[in-house]
Write a protein that binds this DNA or RNA. Structure first.
Length: 481
RNA sequence: CAGGGCAUGGUGUAGCUUGGUAUCACGCUUGCUUCGGGAGCAAGAGAUCAUGGGUUCAAAUCCCAUUGCUCUGACCA
């Protein structure tokens, strides 16, 4: 039955040109539109809905873990940004700056936020007085602007949507825990919501966030063998707090400086979902993020009035259960609809026509593996659909997990490293001597970077194959987006 | 930021060499017939040809500049 699946002619096949395939999906599936300002895109309803679903999941997780949402201004006065040297140096080159307001030259330049550490810090200094105020755990959903040279929808834009968490803690231990816990929340997001595994680990000093003591990241591997940094969490120590004069009195009436974290994920996750799951027929969306989870397609509805009636009943039942269902009763032909919703990645399709009605059955077809099932109309459809969506989630995750597992390759020699990196075979898992020199060398020779030091540091050698020096860490190297 | 390609109704395009305001298809609207893997017929609506300047009686077409998109590479989430 599934060999009748017709190839979608609107989309460039992945093997032909992966980058073009990606761009085609973004446009043809109506996820986004370009605008006349370079690097700034329109998030169209279908694309934005995916973000809303990710946001909903995370927002609940954040609140469960004791965080509150706030909103900071989008402009940062220059003097604030200048307070933390490393931070400024990291971000100033890619900032947009407002110099005119109401036709008048401004006394002080205003930077459009590239991230809001400085604003949070400036606010924290005003609201933190006592140890009783701690911890402070804030998050904000907003957009940030970074003046990028090359842009790609969702993966790198001059403006993107994200969330940034900013927290203050009494102790170093508690702050370090926060950074790690939030990383785990992101990991869970991948598994439960986006249906693919992240590689969790620590960033090398070279790859660390400007101003952070530790940066942790979730790295995702794309089908073209390149890595995508999908999110980061940072432990700041008390560096920012000292620069921004954030302090409080402890129970001994002594001034103390709090320890700080920040963490964020962005609309880049949409790009990851597109690439990880998509195929030549278009998007394949995980049930939890899909704007439409189930599409019902009535067939020959005007031949038998019961067809539409039955479809509507099913729609209502599913909808009542909170399932995002769409009944498409437009006068497009079924074939057109099949192709359309496959391209758009709707996880599950239900078909029902007069013949089915006679046999008292309906068909359910999954998007990710095209598995088709006929089920009796007598059965509890809601229960079946819920189960099916779960199976789809699990199936998609497993498929992605297998891909990742088979693309982490232990390398013992520089030859092997070169082979993995230059042929985009995935992560090169290497024993690294821990030096910046080796990192730079790998970057120079193979255009690859240290993605992370995985938490599982199971050593498999003593010598760094590049420097021939004593190896210190297990490290994943890869070309990255 | 460097190198290649592209820019014409919503989408994909013809026309450009050899100047005379625009082709075809899809989509859209209306009606009828259709509907089990991208339906058919009929009638319609829709473009100051990316932007700015120049040459010319006349520019989608020739010249210059700018902008955006895209691919490949360097930089950065």
């Amino acid at each position: 039955m599934e060999n009748s699946i017709k190839k979608n002619s609107q989309i460039t096949p992945r093997e032909e040109n992966f980058a073009q395939w990606y761009t085609d999906i973004c446009l043809k599936c109506e996820l986004m539109s370009y605008t006349s300002t370079k690097g700034f895109i329109i998030y169209r309803p279908y694309g934005f809905a995916i973000w809303e679903n990710i946001k909903k999941y995370l927002d609940e997780e954040f609140k469960k873990t004791g965080h509150q949402n706030v909103y900071m201004p989008c402009l940062i006065p220059e003097h604030l940004l200048l307070k933390e040297k490393e931070h400024v140096e990291g971000f100033a080159p890619e900032c947009a700056v407002v110099t005119i307001g109401g036709k008048k030259e401004l006394e002080e330049k205003l930077y459009v936020r590239p991230t809001s550490e400085t604003l949070f810090c400036d606010h924290f200094k005003d609201i933190l007085h006592s140890y009783k105020d701690l911890p402070i755990k804030y998050n904000q959903w907003c957009s940030v602007v970074r003046w990028e040279k090359t842009t790609k929808p969702f993966l790198r834009g001059s403006e993107f949507l994200w969330q940034e968490g900013h927290t203050l803690h009494r102790t170093e231990v508690e702050a370090r825990e926060e950074a790690l816990n939030m990383l785990k929340v992101y990991g869970k997001l991948g598994k439960e919501c986006l249906c693919f595994p992240f590689s969790l680990g620590k960033k090398t000093d070279k790859e660390k966030f400007a101003g952070a003591l530790e940066t942790y990241s979730i790295e995702a591997l794309m089908p073209d063998g390149q890595a995508l940094q999908a999110g980061t969490t940072h432990y700041f120590g008390d560096g920012f707090a000292k620069h921004y004069d954030i302090k409080y009195l402890d129970e001994n009436n002594t001034l103390q400086v709090p320890f700080q974290t920040s963490w964020g994920v962005s609309t880049r996750l949409i790009g990851a979902v597109i690439m990880v799951h998509g195929d030549d027929n278009g998007l394949v969306l995980p049930p939890l993020v899909a704007p439409t989870q189930v599409v019902i397609i009535p067939i020959r509805a005007n031949q038998d009035k019961e067809v539409l009636k039955t479809c509507k009943k099913i729609e209502q039942k599913l909808s009542k259960k909170g399932i995002r269902v769409l009944l498409d009763n437009s006068d497009k032909t079924p074939g057109f609809k099949f192709n359309q919703y496959e391209m758009k990645g709707v996880p599950l399709r239900i078909e029902l026509g007069p013949k089915d009605l006679q046999n008292k059955v309906l068909s359910m077809i999954r998007r990710f593996d095209y598995l088709k099932k006929q089920v009796s109309l007598e059965e509890d459809i809601v229960k079946l659909v819920v189960k099916e969506l779960e199976e789809i989630s699990n199936g998609m995750y497993k498929k992605a997990e297998q891909f990742l597992d088979s693309h982490i390759i232990e390398v013992h020699t520089e030859e092997e490293l070169k082979d993995v990196l230059t042929n985009n075979k995935g992560y090169a898992k290497m024993m690294w001597d821990g030096t910046r020199e080796t990192e730079d060398l790998i970057k120079e020779r193979y255009q690859a970077t240290a993605r992370c030091l995985p938490f599982n540091q199971m050593k498999f050698g003593d010598i760094d194959p590049v420097s021939k020096k004593k190896a210190k860490y297990v490290c994943l190297f890869c070309r990255a987006y």
